[in-house]
């Protein structure tokens, strides 16, 4: 491997932290809900429950995506582009010599990095990079493809 770049989310909340946070939220909501139920206003409870379900789902969703990433690897003869989005993993290999890197305008005036050869093409850097970083990465990739041998 000559060169590899990986873009992935930072996940500043650990799974353990997520559980603690969820427990704190549940504690707040349930104490309030129970208190009012005791005072006769039991209809607070269903809403408290719905709210906690929504939170639970949100944390679960985030958890499922913790190991998402996108990567480009430049090897001796190939360029390998991988990405993972929840369960969908993709991997595409190009012949290094023929690989072209292009920065093109896409819908909405943004740029996208396109990697391709032989009529196959793939977009990179949509999820974790912005325009500026994409521009930088494009020139870097072009450079690397040419120079490292």
């Amino acid at each position: 491997m000559d060169y590899k770049i990986i873009a992935h989310p930072n996940n500043s909340l650990s799974p353990k932290g997520a559980i603690l946070l969820m427990m704190a939220l549940a504690a707040i909501t349930l104490v309030v809900g129970l208190g009012f139920t005791l005072a006769g206003a039991w209809l607070v409870m269903p809403f408290a429950g719905l709210e906690l379900l929504a939170f639970g789902y949100a944390f679960y969703y985030v958890y499922l995506h913790t190991s998402d990433f996108e990567s480009i690897e430049i090897c001796e003869n190939t360029v390998v582009v991988e990405s993972k989005n929840y369960k969908t993993s993709t991997r595409l290999e190009f012949q290094r010599y023929w690989t072209q890197i292009m920065l093109r305008e896409v819908d909405g005036g943004q740029t996208g990095i396109f990697i391709g050869s032989h009529g196959k093409e793939l977009e990179f850097g949509r999820r974790f990079l912005d325009d500026e970083q994409r521009a930088k990465l494009t020139s870097e990739l072009k450079e690397k493809l040419r120079t490292i041998k």
Partner: peptide, 17 residues
């Protein structure tokens, strides 16, 4: 960031290995 900021801002800095 530039003003106005790019459509996607501060995306994860690529980690170069």
């Amino acid at each position: 960031l530039p003003s106005p900021p790019p459509y996607h801002s501060f995306t994860e800095q690529p980690v170069v290995k």
